[in-house]
């Protein structure tokens, strides 16, 4: 696939500074910029948006980190800078996001509502590249997955760069993920890979260690949904349409490792597999178990000793269904 965007971003005087060589965005790619505060994510996306005039960049739709509501009604704010087709689209997205009364004064909206207006107006733009700086920051936790799903769907085939420091948001919105630390991109790859295999301790410290299993929603049981990823069936909390693609996510610290042959039936998510690798991760150990799919667990050295973990040992891996998050994908 050809690159829509390829440039070096050197902004040594920025606060924070940015030094990224060969930043690349492919057609249709949804790239998450992930990192802690002050890593330079916002600075980088501002350069990409042309707000910081540091490099020649193609036109892009840009959602600033702190969307501003101008004097006037919600409708006026929704339609700034849009073509007439754009305004129709913006209203459709706004409706989908639950914004109904467009005659209100925009200044009177709550932070979450204002964020939705800003999301709708940026998604209705016609540029081929969409840049979103913390699009879900002001959205209530319980609505985040839904809003993220709408963004993902409305982005369609357009390429996007999405800044976030939230693992769930990253997993839902991104295909690829670039981890930024101190102005540099320290790791870049598919979202699941970066979460599962951080290149070093510093990246692991930033992303946490998470398992992302991509598959298809298979079964619904109450508020639980199962996702079939290869031979593995994972149960978790969330919403997804059966038969459609879905992702299941859980952190490495939620994974329990038990001796082989212990109570397999007690948890819905219990799989037998072999330990493939044990790595030191600061004071903890990161254990990769192959249960037909690599699963990463974070355990204390004490637990590891008790279990006599060694590469090749057979163990049972268990994750509570309530610790797993399931989201419908595109």
């Amino acid at each position: 696939m050809s690159a829509l965007l390829e440039l070096d971003v050197r902004y040594p005087t920025g606060a924070p500074r940015v030094d990224v060589e060969g930043f690349r965005l492919a057609e249709q790619e949804k790239l998450v910029l992930f990192g802690p505060n002050g890593a330079g994510k916002s600075t980088l996306i501002k350069v990409l948006a042309g707000i910081i005039a540091q490099a020649p960049v193609p036109a892009a739709a840009y959602l600033p980190q702190a969307p501003w509501m101008f004097r006037g009604t919600v409708r006026e704010n929704l339609e700034f800078g849009l073509s007439s087709e754009g305004t129709v689209l913006a209203r459709a997205v706004a409706a989908e996001l639950g914004l109904t009364d467009l005659g209100l004064q925009a200044r009177q909206l709550s932070g979450g509502e204002a964020q939705r207006v800003a999301i709708a107006r940026v998604l209705a733009r016609s540029e081929e590249i969409v840049l979103l700086d913390e699009p879900l920051a002001a959205v209530d936790l319980r609505d985040r997955a839904e809003v993220a799903g709408i963004i993902r769907r409305r982005l369609g085939r357009r390429a996007a760069v999405i800044v976030t420091h939230d693992r769930d948001d990253a997993a839902i919105l991104g295909d690829a993920m670039a981890v930024m630390l101190d102005g540099r991109i320290v790791q870049r790859g598919p979202v699941a890979d970066v979460f599962a295999q951080p290149v070093d301790e510093s990246v692991a410290g930033v992303v946490g260690v998470a398992n992302v299993l991509v598959g298809e929603a298979a079964e619904v049981d109450g508020n639980l949904v199962s996702v079939d990823a290869g031979d593995l069936r994972v149960w978790g909390l969330g919403e997804a349409t059966i038969g459609s693609s879905a992702r299941a996510m859980f952190g490495g610290e939620t994974v329990t490792i038990l001796p082989s042959g212990s109570g397999v039936g007690s948890a819905r998510n219990s799989w037998t597999g072999r330990i493939r690798a044990v790595r030191r991760l600061g004071r903890l150990l990161e254990v990769v178990i192959d249960v037909g799919h690599p699963v990463v667990a974070i355990v204390t050295p004490g637990a590891a000793e008790a279990l006599d973990m060694a590469s090749g040992a057979e163990v049972v891996v268990s994750v509570k269904a309530t610790a797993v998050r399931v989201v419908g994908g595109d």
Binding site: K46, A49, G50, I51, A59, A61, Y62, L63, P64, A66, P67, W68, F70, F80, G81, A118, V122
Partner: peptide, 19 residues
């Protein structure tokens, strides 16, 4: 934040000034 948002709208110059 307002200036940044204004730039993001990519309005014609006179419209940007008017807003």
């Amino acid at each position: 934040a307002a200036k940044e948002q204004l730039a993001a709208f990519r309005l014609p110059r006179w419209r940007r000034g008017a807003v």
